[in-house]
Write a protein that binds this DNA or RNA. Structure first.
Lengths: 217, 217
DNA sequence: AATTTATCGATATAAAAGTATCGAATAAGA
DNA sequence: TCTTATTCGATACTTTTATATCGATAAATT
């Protein structure tokens, strides 16, 4: 099997976002050239990325917008929705519960869990919040295999372990903690810190550089 | 000037997180070997990454934990705090306002803005929320140069433009929209979609593969 | 109908990132 | 004091990812 470059996978949603915008604007066709111009990704790269999803384009006109959207969605498995549990219904957790977009990306949060007894029994955006003691039972019964981890750092590893013990094989990790998991378990980190690190360093570099330029006048 | 690989920048916060944990546990020294074991990053890679921050280690004992922490923090400019504005105080916006960790990463949200008049005048975690009409004035007066973008997709580009028009040079973009900005403006995307794409595809691949294996028995 | 132009997709080259190897340095133990 | 084990840091190598080149194709134009 051909292994898909991670970076390609990460670019696909960006194309998808644009394509859906084009579709709303009524554009029936889009060329790789166009996508490249807007995203800043190199044309050849866009072509390679799209090629992996299996679509073929037509010279002079490009790709059918609708077809391309379908191809990307099905490639990412965003067409049929997967059920998942969310653990940690604090600020970030509630934000995700309220995030409508997720359903458009094939993810349906069917229940949330939190240690705080005050939250237990409440509902956020139609999703019910349970105490952690209910997790094991529900998780096994509903055959959930995706878990969203939005607990405080200190509970990250233990919570991840609980998920794994109850059959979860893919963890979407929003904590800055590196999770130690058995082979075969998929962990995907949403690394806000990583992103902030890039921003901070770039900005410091930029400001420092500008100061130097000013001084040299 | 030596340009820092983006991926190195992204790994640094991960090391930092671990190092701070080690420090709490009272470990005065950490070796690259140790960091590599835990993070899963190759030893040589860890060494290269650390080398870029300018620290030097001692054979047989490794690096001084405290020194390494300081080196990474100062390299990322996380020691002195930068003021920033947040626009879009919805679910995700409020989550960020309530996210204490940010201050430990050199980011201080000094004000938030939202179109919803109901939010105007309220306070989340000590941060006051204003109407968007106040943005221009406050932004210029306080010389803010970092903006956090947490508005709905359809307002992303326009809001970004407003930020730039008022002196913001670095945008931390939480929307899935690709922002079109003038040269020199730094955009850093927290790509939840990208991350979800990797998760979805990996999981689909894994499940598909397991099904095949089962069938072959 | 012939020509031009925009785009595709394949192949080849270049750059970047990751991995392996090796000598040097230093603490700990013989 | 000498040897051994561990870790560092530099250099060389490999793999991955990105960019460039080029012929082929199909719509638009002459």
């Amino acid at each position: 099997m051909v292994s898909i470059p991670v970076l390609t996978l990460k670019r696909l949603p960006q194309y998808l976002e644009l394509l859906q915008q084009f579709q709303r604007e009524g554009q029936s066709h889009v060329s790789a050239t166009r996508l490249a111009e807007i995203t800043g990704v190199h044309v050849t790269q866009v072509r390679k990325d799209l090629a992996l999803t299996g679509v073929v384009g037509v010279p002079k006109v490009g790709h059918k917008t609708a077809e391309l959207i379908e191809a990307i969605k099905s490639f990412l498995n965003w067409n049929d929705s997967s059920s998942c549990f969310l653990v940690g219904a604090g600020h970030l957790g509630s934000a995700l519960l309220g995030y409508q977009e997720l359903s458009r990306k094939g993810l349906s949060i069917v229940a949330a869990f939190d240690t705080d007894p005050a939250l237990s029994g409440t509902t956020v955006n139609g999703v019910k919040i349970y105490g952690l003691d209910r997790f094991a039972n529900l998780c096994r019964r509903l055959h959930i295999n995706i878990g969203i981890l939005t607990v405080p750092s200190e509970h990250a590893q233990a919570t991840a372990q609980m998920m794994i013990d109850n059959g979860i094989v893919a963890i979407w990790n929003f904590t800055p903690v590196h999770l130690d998991v058995p082979e075969g378990v998929i962990v995907e980190n949403v690394d806000m810190s990583a992103s902030l690190a890039v921003l901070s360093h770039r900005l410091a570099e930029k400001l420092h550089h500008e100061t130097k330029v000013e001084r040299s006048h």
